[in-house]
Write a protein that binds this DNA or RNA. Sequence first.
DNA 1: CCTAGGTAATAGTTTAGCTACAGTCGGTTC
DNA 2: GAACCGACTGTAGCTAAACTATTACCTAGG
Lengths: 281, 281
Amino acid sequence: MLKKIREKRDQLNKSERKVADTILLNPSVVTQLSIAALAKSAGVSEPTVNRFCRSFLSKGFPDFKIQLAKSLVSGSLFVTRSVEKNDSAEQYTDKIFTSTIATLDAARKQVDVEAIATVVDHLVQAKQIAFFGLGASGSVARDAQHKFFRFNLPVVAYDDVLMQRMVAAASHTGDVIVIISYTGRTKDLVEIAQLANSTGATVVGITLENSPLAKVCPVVLSVPHVENTDIYMPMISRLTQLTLLDVLATGVTLKRGEGFHQHLDKIKQSLQSTRYAIEEK
Amino acid sequence: MLKKIREKRDQLNKSERKVADTILLNPSVVTQLSIAALAKSAGVSEPTVNRFCRSFLSKGFPDFKIQLAKSLVSGSLFVTRSVEKNDSAEQYTDKIFTSTIATLDAARKQVDVEAIATVVDHLVQAKQIAFFGLGASGSVARDAQHKFFRFNLPVVAYDDVLMQRMVAAASHTGDVIVIISYTGRTKDLVEIAQLANSTGATVVGITLENSPLAKVCPVVLSVPHVENTDIYMPMISRLTQLTLLDVLATGVTLKRGEGFHQHLDKIKQSLQSTRYAIEEK
DNA sequence: CCTAGGTAATAGTTTAGCTACAGTCGGTTC
DNA sequence: GAACCGACTGTAGCTAAACTATTACCTAGG
């Protein structure tokens, strides 16, 4: 909402711009103001305010206030500020959780659902699935392996370049290779993607949109750009990758349908003896 | 807000209870109703509605509507429903992202900030840091290793029981051992925690509150219980663990202060040559 | 059974918001 | 350069919505 106002501000005539500025200056108090009070503090007349509200798809001023109030909440949830030098434990804890949540929310909004469906289709039919990642994304690849293994799929993961290169070169049609890289600018991975492409394997990239890696992958699940490009960036982008893999795993499970929970139960039971029983209350 | 109304409902007299029920029945449309319309559909008089609103710390009906609208937004963000059999790609994608976000938000609210601060203190002074996890939590441990390594700390990670046992047995005062397990009911890990305790090492558990593991760890970072205890549970709990580790890493970085960014820059530069340059626009 | 207290509804008053109308300012064309 | 047209802003008036106060009725207690 505030974003909308900001975008539209330049197209407004000068009285309405005054209203916009007044609202942007302190949106939260505006929700408690009457139309007269707002008009006065913006230095315009009441109908001007009314017209302003209507130009934002509102039925009138009260309606506008409600919409504004709503947007303030969802806004404030995602107001991410970077961690600063003298932050207390409470402050940096909250900031990191908040920006993590904000990033996931951004990812949720920009996920390409069709790409998800396509990738799921490929995975369900795959003869062999391989996850490739380096560095932090290597852990993500290994995690994906665990997850898909639980779902009884022929899966491997590699976090070293040589193995990745060999597997890519030895792949065939029907194999799916998922390459994970936040920046999508690691030369080795781009080359490996091209190599795998040439063998007929299906290559899926989980990476930044328009990155070199994205350009050579036939199917791409894009990860949103993380705002704070400082130290904490790789930490947060990784969570988005993991969540996307969760989505894929879920999609595959659903596609394979019944009879499948039996398999999961088997795994669960196999772990039973390693664990302490849940205490009865 | 809705929660407040639900809690207070039983203390209300019957007319006001009618109002409460009407609102709970369909909160979102109430935000567009006038006091008269709401009174009519609840079958009571207008002042009754007004009194009702005032009893919820509102200045009046319009104010109440705004508060309600606000709470509806934050509520709807976290309404998590489990994935169902015939969900479309769009549906399950959204559900997984939503419940992931909800879980992180829950974690944010229940994080023990003092425990974070304590663990950070231990980590900063640690001679050696070890992360232990098995299965899915093994990936988390390895990821933690990557992260702390970037921050120039003496860190190792193990995802097999034998190595963990040996390292625990060989630990000393000043070593920090972080044990990661969602359920906290894996026998081996509990035994390893006890073993490490006896050597004087500082043992930190990242696990469910009140779990067997939590009980033997002097310091515990608790992970909230995940609602949907079906297939998807381990996937989501893992993200909370990762985020907690992000928080710890950040805390440690802040504590160590300046001079430290130089170290990070060095690492960044060392990766430079493996990457494609960012294109100029 | 009567009285008192509390709750709810109705009516009235005040205030807020919307609409219609008018005037002024600015721009363009003759 | 002047006049006309069009648009934007403000003023005034009306409608409606909400809050307050008063009255009546019901219930509970003495």
